[in-house]
Design a protein around this nucleic acid. Sequence first.
DNA 1: TTTGTTGTCAACTCCTGTGTTGAAAGATCT
DNA 2: AGATCTTTCAACACAGGAGTTGACAACAAA
Lengths: 238, 238
Amino acid sequence: MTQPRRGRPPRQRADATLATVAGSGIEARRRAAMEEGGVAYLARRQEIIQVAANVFRERGHEATLRDVAESLGTERASIYYYIGSKEELLQEIVREALERDMIAARHIKGSTQSTPAKIRALIESMVLSYAENYPHMNVYVEDLGRIARQDSQWAVEVIEETRQYEALVRSILLEGQEDGTLRSDVAIGVSAMALFGMINWMYRWYRPSYPTPPAEIAHTLAEIFLGGYALGPAGSAP
Amino acid sequence: MTQPRRGRPPRQRADATLATVAGSGIEARRRAAMEEGGVAYLARRQEIIQVAANVFRERGHEATLRDVAESLGTERASIYYYIGSKEELLQEIVREALERDMIAARHIKGSTQSTPAKIRALIESMVLSYAENYPHMNVYVEDLGRIARQDSQWAVEVIEETRQYEALVRSILLEGQEDGTLRSDVAIGVSAMALFGMINWMYRWYRPSYPTPPAEIAHTLAEIFLGGYALGPAGSAP
DNA sequence: TTTGTTGTCAACTCCTGTGTTGAAAGATCT
DNA sequence: AGATCTTTCAACACAGGAGTTGACAACAAA
């Protein structure tokens, strides 16, 4: 999985534009098709990523390119016409999961609502994104640990983005403590982690077939995080 | 990792009690030492499990028995004198993480405190166990997904136990809704998952070096779950 | 000192997965 | 039809990890 280049190295073509190239040189053909950016090509590529996301969600890390191919009803080798490596497949899945969330979060942070309303909006945005981007989001969360241990440039970027997201949420909580709309008797760091935990843990239990609709899940989580579960004074001991 | 038995199968001894056995037959020697249950032997075994837990927490699933051996300052083969397989190592780690929690939870459920107090106690118990059983607990949580996909008897048991734990928590929440100490306008299933999420997500951020002490982490989580984060009426819309 | 046990180690074997090759067959477009 | 794109198939080359073996040292008991 991490091994850079195996097998006999692909023969070097002196001139890449020459027509009839000996050998299959799948890497070159992929690169070419990729650069070209044909609609059908990209669509098929997308389809592969989508199916792979499902397979990875089901089988986790034991999932094999053979499994993906099987799920696609095609051959392992064919995949390599669209994707350079298993790792690249993972990366595409994660990229798709990640891209939309940051934008939404920044937007919310910059808005003029009250802080609790911002948090409510944030929870809603995250939960809905979770449901929409299923199974990409699940793969992303389940893989976070492994990604954090890598040191490829891509991994570093993903972790940095994740970190930024967390920082953004912490900054909203701080804002609330300062303007007096949030309690300031509890640690911000732990609170932020509690919030992320509530939401990210969805990767363990949320499936599209889950009876409670995403909007209601979001509502419940927001109610608990902001309003608490206890009735009356039982909840808050100073 | 899942492959049952590889390499040349160990020679069968006609009589296992015969003294001078040809070959090392490490499996037999392990079994014998295990049955004997010598103190030093078990202690060394424990040490291996402990070190392995640390390695697995750090490197996750990519961790190799070579890594464990290295961390132990010994040779890969030596480990097999104490443990039959990598999987067995994982299982021991998880077993240790799991055993104590259920007892505590049952105890709490059966106690006479108010429901919110029970929840508070439960959170405390889980968080403290998390901190104490580090890194076993982390390995357990990070591995839950993989375990759930297995079908060995052991895996089934672990998942069943986890399920029971969740059911127990749900039953406490229900109790609270019925006796009027908890809100009943939010779904119990999602609430329970929110609670587990807050706590289990610790595997992503909690380290023994974390500045906030475990008792305070527990307090914060309990405050949020029971009392909510918002001040005033902002939190609860209908 | 001899003997038996306990633990260690280097050197295998076997297996599985990834990425690759060549050539050839369908598709599709021009 | 001819050219070009897409897919298939049956190999193969590593790489790397798990588990095993057979001998050997250290150490205690005899």
